[in-house]
Design a binder for these strands. Structure first.
Lengths: 333, 333
DNA sequence: CTGTTAGCGCATTCAT
DNA sequence: ATGAATGCGCTAACAG
């Protein structure tokens, strides 16, 4: 490996001058600067990151901690996050926790040990104590309230989605949502409850005047969604809202197994917008959070903190309700 | 940050002894060794990776270069890859190329500059010249033939899939496959061709004795799959084989738009096995490569090279044909 | 503007 | 078995 001293000697200058010429810090004669740069390129010089990090006391590294690398719901944000941070001169190091709190704790510690300068965190365990030695921005989920975060405005989005469903004439609705421990689950549910209340639909197991909203909690898995539908059966609502794409998948599977046709026998609305939502005939009506924008904002927030700026309250990123065919209109009465 | 010299002093030993006690290299008295370790833990010491890397001349870092972080086809392998390498004491640094050859070249160079000790590579550009300074194992696709690689045995898998289709009675088949530039596309196509030939089905545009196999190349996108179907229309085969999950998606979309019912009017088989393949009614018949095993083998191969062992020919990992409802049986006639 | 020097934290010599 | 000294490659401080 060719090192700085090599290009310095070849260019006939001292190490300091070569360093300044290459980094742009400090002043150096135009001509010699260009010469050094030319020599460096010709020799194929590239700085040793370890030596630089040791000397500068900074690693130019950002840690990303997420539950599951194989979940496109997260990776959709990561792609742009990676790009933004890379543009700002940071390397992203990724660790996945497999949704396990103890793995999460260890991975977090490992990142601190690695001297990352900041962390983007998709929390699993809401009770995890976060280190204060390094800026952290939370993505998607939010654990501590005073924490910088970039999240989808699920409350408004699911409200809007639910309202659209009500406007289509549905007054017997069931909601399947993830565990209460996740801030995302709570927010999504809140959106549905708010819309229902505004429409005069009571949260009740038995229909009142034909109207009711039932809530079922389930693990955020395909099986979870399927079991929730199974429990509802045979007293089905006119419209089912499954508040995660996995839950939608499970609901569809169970409906298929039981011969319940969507949307003829049961309307279905979802959350998120994986590609297959629009391939599925006649398309799944859903609230689609803006994943790429969330990634971008997370990067911005972290970069701002790194620059010493104060970050305001959590950024709530608006999404979009996609109306497709899985929710049918109901004739009144 | 507490450093080695701190724990050394607190334990009442020299820096060298502390280093040896913690690393296990060299010999040190049992008792003092335990004392040093205890002190280190109590002080919350963790070694500075930069300093260690500078001194040891190794970064304990592996680079992963893939086309798209948001594509679960890749990330499914990455999850286990990450785990295996992490267990072996390596940090994974990830870069995505966005399927762009020039980005790929730059990202590869960046990794070399970062002094990664090895690279796992999902190639985009088959003509990319690979550095020889560092062990590289290719995942999924294969560019240079003498390169260590872990890939799915697509040839055998698609052969088996096609054979199953033929056995179901189909003799008018069309195959949609990706660009010839990808080794994966070539292998998958080869599998279909081999099975067809064995069944006496000629590769031809016009049916001979009612039998023919047509081949259409398309970009590996949803639109690509849709357009391929559009071009086939209205002279449809009895069974369509779309050799990537994106192509399947496109084919389904176009069929939906044109009112072609799968599988009543057209049988459809696919490649890969994203979750929605089994949710889709009545399920998509497909060849499912073993993605996790591929990730595991890639890790093994790289670790072996890192240990100085010679790696044999590319590892071909067998997958599994999943028979579902999208391919119907045909009464002979 | 530029050359020389010190030291970042660690693992590894070389003496003892 | 252990302590002291050395140097990995680089940047920042200093002197010129």
């Amino acid at each position: 490996m060719v090192k700085l001293i090599d290009v310095a000697r070849t260019a006939g200058v001292g190490a300091g001058t070569a360093s300044r010429a290459l980094s742009g810090n400090g002043s150096v004669d135009r001509e010699t600067k260009e010469r050094v740069i030319a020599v460096a390129k010709q020799l194929g010089y590239s700085p040793d990151v370890a030596a630089r990090a040791l000397r500068e006391r900074r690693t130019r590294t950002i840690g990303l901690l997420l539950p599951d690398l194989a979940n496109e719901f997260y990776t959709a944000s990561v792609a742009v996050l990676q790009q933004e941070l890379s543009d700002a001169g940071y390397q992203l190091v990724i660790a996945s926790t497999g949704n396990d709190p103890s793995t999460e704790r260890i991975a977090l510690q490992t990142m601190i040990d690695q001297r990352v300068e900041g962390i983007v965190h998709v929390p699993v365990d809401a009770d995890l104590v976060l280190p204060t030695t390094v800026p952290i921005v939370q993505l998607n989920r939010q654990s501590a309230s005073r924490q910088a975060a970039a999240a989808s405005d699920d409350l408004a989005g699911v409200d809007e989605l639910t309202t659209a469903i009500v406007h289509a004439g549905h007054r017997d609705i069931a909601v399947i949502v993830g565990p209460t421990g996740f801030s995302t689950s709570r927010n999504r549910l809140l959106g549905a409850l708010r819309a229902a209340e505004r429409a005069g639909i009571p949260q009740s197991e038995r229909p009142l005047d034909g109207a009711r909203l039932r809530v079922r909690h389930a693990p955020l898995t395909v099986d979870g969604g399927a079991q929730a539908v199974a429990q509802l059966f045979p007293d089905l609502p006119s419209c089912l809202i499954a508040l995660s794409s996995r839950l939608v998948m499970g609901a569809l599977r169970e409906c298929g197994d039981r011969g319940i046709h969507v949307p003829e026998s049961l309307s279905l609305a979802g959350y998120g917008d994986p590609d297959w939502f629009s391939i599925w005939r006649p398309g799944i009506t859903t609230f689609a959070p803006n994943l790429t924008e969330m990634g971008r904002q997370a990067a911005r927030l972290l970069l701002a903190q790194l620059a010493g700026e104060e970050t305001g309250p959590p950024a709530l990123i608006p999404g979009k309700v996609q109306v497709r065919g899985s929710v049918t209109g109901l004739s009144a009465g």
